[in-house]
């Protein structure tokens, strides 16, 4: 990873043009050829620095639903409950956090009604209450990292 890679990532996080040659602009700005931009991106994906190159969807507009869920899990059962929760394919990110509510995960489903169904299943499997905290408003979703 060199300075040029960082600059490339910083610029491409802001998005790329949907045109026949989407790398032309960034290539020109960085005085690279389009081929070498593509080459660098391939290497960054292969090295695991970039997870993917492409669109970021809005799940709700695709007809699905997303929410954030928290649980208060007794320490001695944490691993077991994590397994039960993660066994649901609808669960994406699951983080332990330092609070009485110590397990936080994102649930995303293809249809809105599956949120409640999945939550009910998790409650019944674990015997623990779930706290559903859906998003009411987005102020910023850029998830942009300056390198």
């Amino acid at each position: 990873m060199d300075e040029m890679d960082r600059e490339l990532i910083n610029r491409l996080q802001d998005g790329i043009a949907v045109t026949d040659r989407p790398f032309a602009e960034v290539a020109q700005a960085l005085e690279l050829t389009e081929e070498s931009v593509v080459e660098r991106l391939r290497r960054l994906v292969d090295d695991g620095k970039l997870s993917r190159f492409g669109p970021l969807y809005n799940a709700e507009r695709l007809g699905g639903a997303v929410t954030l869920v928290a649980m208060a899990v007794p320490e001695e059962r944490y691993e077991q409950v994590a397994e039960q929760v993660n066994a649901h394919p609808e669960v994406s990110h699951n983080y332990a956090r330092e609070h009485e509510l110590n397990m936080w995960f994102v649930l995303s489903t293809e249809r809105p009604e599956q949120i409640e169904q999945t939550l009910a299943a998790i409650e019944s499997e674990t015997g623990l209450p779930v706290y559903n905290m859906p998003r009411e408003k987005e102020y910023y979703i850029g998830l942009r990292f300056q390198l």
């Binding site: 949907v18 970039l50 669109p55 990292f145």
Partner: peptide
């Protein structure tokens, strides 16, 4: 708005 943006997804 189905696609929010096109770009890179970094492994932060």
């Amino acid at each position: 708005g189905v696609i929010r943006r096109h770009g890179v997804i970094v492994r932060h």
